[in-house]
């Protein structure tokens, strides 16, 4: 295995009686794109803050590039690019001034930053907006600027907390494309998300978190293989009939999950299962066969949906 940039053992964070992160272990290798998948409140953002040396762990050990954030906070922050969940761009400044001053916070020279700005503006597709005040940008542009800004110090690790939450589908796809490019350049990415498609698109490896604990850890494909079947058949009978159909359907599928509005039937071949059901004279109002996703993995692991 290649060089490990982050090593966490028994990492724990409590706020009074509340355990936000409950003794988790994980390693992140250089150049890897590592994800934290889980619902809101799973402890993902807290873990990110501890790695970002802006929160102090309660117990456990953590090293980032061989350093302990508790002892060498500023040194670790110098290695990191941070893209927080809520944009904290400087609204009173222009697009290029935002990148400039952020570089100055790291102590970088003006000449270095000024050489860097055109490259970052191109990356963020914001060349036209360089002298525009940040206030006037769209949500997607702001997020891209936040990423560009975080890259000014050429970080070894880029941390993205819910990078596409609140963006429209088009803006999400542009952002994913930009993050892919970074991944190709070998930047180590740390991503938290509660979107399974985002995790599947961007992460080489991820941990599924719930209530501060790690439920599973692997590549998206392997997790799906381990915790779900190849396909899923989704059937709806109308909210009053869903429950009574469960007992009839249960023997037919490998596994069954009942959601408020639909029933999920897990099988290797979804179409075949649907045929079996119709052959028994059962006719759902609607049916859909799809591939298993991380959503199904999460449902299997926790009995709950990711997005509630």
């Amino acid at each position: 295995m290649s060089e490990k940039l982050i090593v966490a053992r028994g990492l724990t964070k409590t706020y009074g009686d509340f355990i936000a992160v409950d003794g988790i272990d994980f390693d992140v290798a250089k150049g890897e794109s590592f994800g934290f998948l889980g619902p809101n409140g799973a402890g993902k953002s807290t873990t990110m803050r501890i790695i970002g040396a802006t929160s102090v762990r309660t117990s456990g050990t953590l090293t980032i590039l061989g350093k302990d954030p508790e002892v060498h906070g500023p040194q670790i922050r110098a290695h990191l690019g941070v893209v927080p969940q809520q944009d904290n761009l400087d609204n009173e400044l222009t697009v290029s001034e935002n990148i400039f001053i952020y570089g100055r916070y790291f102590g970088l020279s003006s000449s270095f930053i000024n050489r860097k700005i055109p490259e970052l503006l191109e990356f963020a597709q914001l060349e036209e907006k360089k002298d525009t005040k940040v206030e006037a940008l769209s949500g997607g542009m702001k997020r891209r600027l936040t990423i560009a800004r975080s890259l000014v110090s050429e970080p070894d690790i880029l941390m993205l907390d819910e990078p596409t939450t609140g963006l429209d589908p088009q803006a999400r796809h542009i952002l994913w494309d930009r993050l892919f490019r970074l991944k190709e350049q070998g930047v180590t990415l740390l991503i938290t998300t509660h979107y399974m498609d985002e995790a599947e698109q961007l992460c080489d490896r991820l941990i599924v978190m719930d209530k501060g604990k790690i439920m599973a850890e692997d590549s998206p494909a392997q997790l799906i293989k381990d915790y779900s079947t190849k396909e899923v058949l989704e059937v709806r009978f109308g909210s009053d009939r869903n429950q009574e159909m469960v007992d009839v359907l249960r023997p037919l599928a490998d596994r069954i999950e009942v959601l408020p509005d639909r029933i999920l039937l897990y099988a290797t071949d979804g179409e075949q299962l649907l045929e079996q059901i119709t052959a028994k004279g059962i006719h759902p109002n609607t049916s859909l066969v799809r591939r298993s996703s991380l959503e199904d993995v999460f449902l299997r692991l926790t009995g709950r949906s990711l997005v509630e």
């Binding site: 060498h72 906070g73 500023p74 040194q75 922050r77 110098a78 290695h79 100055r104 916070y105 790291f106 102590g107 970088l108 270095f112 000014v152 110090s153 050429e154």
Partner: peptide, 23 residues
């Protein structure tokens, strides 16, 4: 290359290193 890391490491052992970067 960016010298952000070198700059921060230069502060080790100096006054208030955890709270003050001298900037």
């Amino acid at each position: 290359r960016s010298n952000a890391v070198e700059l921060s490491e230069g502060r080790i052992g100096k006054f208030g290193e955890k709270y003050y970067a001298g900037r």
